[in-house]
Design a protein around this nucleic acid. Structure first.
Lengths: 235, 235
DNA sequence: TGGATGTTTTAGACTTATCTAACCCTAGCT
DNA sequence: AGCTAGGGTTAGATAAGTCTAAAACATCCA
């Protein structure tokens, strides 16, 4: 008995395809930004597919009970959908953390790798990684890692650096993981989550923000300061 | 500029799908066992698909230049196909090694995980893993890991334990990674690649082989001794 | 040499995920 | 209130990978 076990097809824990997980994760992210219901086109654009493709998938996801899709009115996650999204986000951020800390993969490369592997690691491997890292609460970019209970992470009260007034002091908390160039730039200048910074000056109309970090001063561009989030010093 | 980078579709280094890689890897394994050309049905059975499915895929693989398929006559890998197979095998065995050594995943569980992840790790991650492990030459089951040059591993001259005569002394070299129960059994009895063993007796007709390992004697069944490979002691 | 047997291929269908092109719906403006 | 702009959906097509059922092939044996 007991033949090969070398099967071609690999079912993931739940029966969710990588595509399904990508849609659900994208909807989760768009819902999180709080700007009302999620539209088909913005979703499609984020995923790099045609709007018609997103419509088709939304119909499937609705049938699977992962989203509520009101034609022409937008889409939102069901509780089941949110669980799936948080599971994938947990995978993503644990993998990023692991690659960075245990394997020394550069900060700006881990996102791409995690974007793939998040769909394929088993629950057992997720668990091993989490334990090895000591159940971290945040990934290397400062994004919160959902816990085993898959509760949605609480809002950390951070604001874009762009919103700070001149003279403000704050802690750099997080930055989007998806732009390698930006991450490389920050890494090169020693600006990583957790560091204290103070705004020494700023130019209007999206001009640079002058920031003092670890004794050095940097002029950070408009795009960058909109993506960097900080926790203003209390008071 | 520079939008999301959160694309739904993940292209692998080469343009090979997981399915393609599974077929090529299976053909490689069947070719290696040296019993003439590889047949459609045995391939299909190994992969858990219908023979008609294998035929269709073989036509595709031939078109891609990965195999030579002579209708009704069997299939074999081209040089390009062998390269792909060895790359996947390298991934598989590096992942197994890493999961076992760095993450402490049990011996009998690493195969299943590697079977999935082998298709999705980047060349960069492969490299990081190999370096972290010190470029190992064998995985935890004793199978040789193809090198960076993707040269086919030389025959190690090992033979099935079943072929040893009573009184023979040998080193246990390797065992198939795909049967978790077998692996668990061996692990529980401290029988792992590298250990010395001697055959103290044997029964005919697939009966048990009595083996002394690390001071203890075990009666190993017919199925097991056919799958365990050993390097007979010189002389 | 002509079957019988077993393997292999062809034919036709299905699912998932994607596309383009054309049509539809909503909302905002006049 | 009607029209238009723009986003959303439908329709129809495609590619990958799979299935079942039926036809074709190769081989071995009498």
């Amino acid at each position: 008995m007991s033949a090969h076990h070398t099967h071609a097809r690999h079912e993931r824990s739940a029966a969710n395809s990588a595509a399904i997980e990508d849609y659900v994760k994208a909807i989760y992210a768009l819902e999180r930004r709080g700007t009302g219901p999620v539209g088909t086109s913005e979703l499609a654009e984020r995923l790099g597919v045609a709007p018609a493709t997103a419509t088709a998938m939304l119909k499937r996801l609705d049938g699977l009970g992962l989203v509520h899709h009101q034609p022409y009115r937008g889409v939102g996650l069901t509780d089941a959908g949110q669980k799936v999204a948080l599971e994938v986000v947990r995978h993503h951020r644990l993998i990023e953390s692991y690659l960075s800390e245990a394997l020394g993969m550069p900060w700006d490369r881990v996102h791409e790798e995690a974007e793939v592997l998040e769909h394929y690691i088993s629950e057992e491997l997720e668990e091993l990684i989490a334990s090895k890292l000591g159940d971290p609460s945040h990934d290397p970019h400062g994004d919160p890692i959902p816990g085993r209970d898959l509760a949605p992470p609480a809002d950390d009260g951070s604001v874009p650096l762009a919103e700070l007034e001149s003279g403000a002091v704050a802690t750099f908390t997080r930055v989007s993981d998806s732009d390698p160039e930006m991450l490389r730039y920050l890494a090169e200048h020693g600006i990583r989550p957790g560091v204290e910074l103070s705004v020494t000056g700023r130019q209007p109309f999206g001009g640079p923000v002058y920031v003092e970090v670890g004794g050095a001063e940097h002029a950070l561009g408009g795009e960058l300061v909109r993506r960097m989030r900080v926790a203003p010093a209390a008071g």
